[in-house]
Design a protein around this nucleic acid. Structure first.
Length: 394
DNA sequence: AAATGAATAT
DNA sequence: AATATTCATT
């Protein structure tokens, strides 16, 4: 009766294998365009597997000869060697912090060992961040492929999902959701030649090292002041940007260099950050120039202790400000909270390495954290003897 | 010289 | 509108 056991064993293995394959397929499917053959292979494997499974108990099954053109002889158990069906995915990286990004609503408790799937980690490996397929004008078209999955210095995976999605005019201020929603972007990804690569042909095998240490761009030789490739601020990049921003205490005190350093994105230059910051600052200010003039009916904000707060609750704000401001400052919202507080004013220059060390302070979701621990000082002291009242005059 | 912010330029 | 580049200041 050993045979029985054996078969049984085989059977189970097969099943696991199948499952693994299926999952693999699911992953790959997203990249259909880029990895058509992969998909094909997996499909074949699955097919083969299925056949074997259906082959029932009958002794050695060897139906492998039908499809897989060159399956290397018939060894039924070819599969055995393939995969250690396991999730060894030691996702040791990932340094997401704060931001209620992940929706922990995993109710998918699949019967038993189905294991949990956390896809989305796998697609972090792509680099892609530049290049927006410029016009057919000039531009150096080099580097055919070489997608180099790099990530050498984890650039945070700033990518440009090219989901077509019509941009319905329902935008309106919005960058709000778009960021969060982007998690949706299960769609395809543009893998192309992200790295500048010294045009000029040949060799160039730069292999990773994309560090661009060389004077890739710029005039290299006099004369042509080629404009730099426009850095594309993908949501990911922007996210980093915002994060750094708040660690530094708001857009008005953060300096480009600091930001750049905090962002830890290699290849990112000061100027790029500077530029972005400038835009951000502008865009963040008085976003609604529409109808200005006499709406002095209800003062939108009041200065308390040096920070702008909405009138109705500045009693409590004092402390929550940190949370609110820093948490939301990111999202300049016209009507509600377009304020950022120069936090970091009183507190020591809290500069934590984005790598570790994170006090579990706010893991808040959307709700509200109303005063948890806050009171320290009394704002009432009319802090700025003269500051108040005088609204910023332009 | 290098960093920064504002003004331009594309 | 979004980036890049130039300009003036420190």
């Amino acid at each position: 009766m050993d045979n029985n056991h054996h078969h049984h064993h085989q059977f189970q293995k097969m099943q696991s294998y199948m499952e693994a394959l299926e999952e693999e397929k699911r992953k790959i499917q997203v990249f259909q365009r880029e990895l058509p053959l992969c998909l094909e292979l997996v499909n074949q494997a699955i097919e083969t597997c299925r056949q074997q499974l259906s082959g029932t108990t009958t002794e050695n099954m060897q139906g492998g000869q039908s499809q897989c053109s060159d399956q290397t002889s018939t060894d039924g158990p070819v599969l055995e060697e393939f995969i250690p069906i396991k999730r060894i995915c030691s996702a040791s990286d990932d340094e997401e912090e704060e931001e209620g990004d992940e929706q922990h609503s995993h109710k998918k408790s699949k019967s038993d060992g189905a294991a949990d799937k956390k896809k989305s980690d796998w697609l972090r490996s792509a680099q892609l961040w530049n290049q927006t397929t410029p016009g057919p004008t000039l531009q150096q078209e080099a580097t055919p492929r070489r997608v180099s999955v790099v990530e050498v210095t984890r650039n945070g995976g700033a990518f440009q999902p090219f989901l077509r999605e019509n941009k319905i005019p329902v935008k309106t201020s919005t960058s709000h959701d778009s960021d969060r929603q982007n998690k949706n972007n299960q769609s395809l990804i543009e893998l192309h030649s992200p790295v500048p690569v010294t045009a000029t042909s040949s060799t160039a095998d730069t292999t990773t090292a994309n560090g661009n240490g060389n004077g890739t761009r710029k005039e290299e030789k006099e004369g042509q002041t080629q404009r730099k490739q426009r850095r594309c601020w993908s949501p990911e990049l922007h996210r980093r940007f915002l994060q750094s921003l708040q660690q530094l205490g708001g857009p008005h005190v953060a300096t480009p260099k600091q930001i750049r350093e905090l962002m830890k994105v290699d290849g990112l230059t000061n100027d790029e950050v500077k530029s972005h910051l400038q835009k951000y600052r502008l865009h963040t200010r008085r976003p609604s120039p529409t109808q200005h003039g006499g709406n002095s009916q209800a003062p939108q904000f009041v200065v308390v202790g040096g920070i702008w707060v909405p009138p109705p609750e500045y009693a409590t704000v004092a402390a929550s400000t940190t949370t609110t401001a820093s948490g939301e400052a990111a999202r300049p919202s016209p009507s509600s909270a377009g304020v950022y507080a120069p936090l970091a004013i009183a507190a020591a220059p809290q500069q934590r390495n984005p790598s570790k060390d994170h006090s579990p302070s706010h893991s808040e979701g959307r709700g509200s954290h109303s005063a948890g621990d806050a009171h320290s000082k009394s704002p009432s002291t009319s802090s700025s003897t003269h500051t108040a009242t005088s609204s910023p005059v332009d």
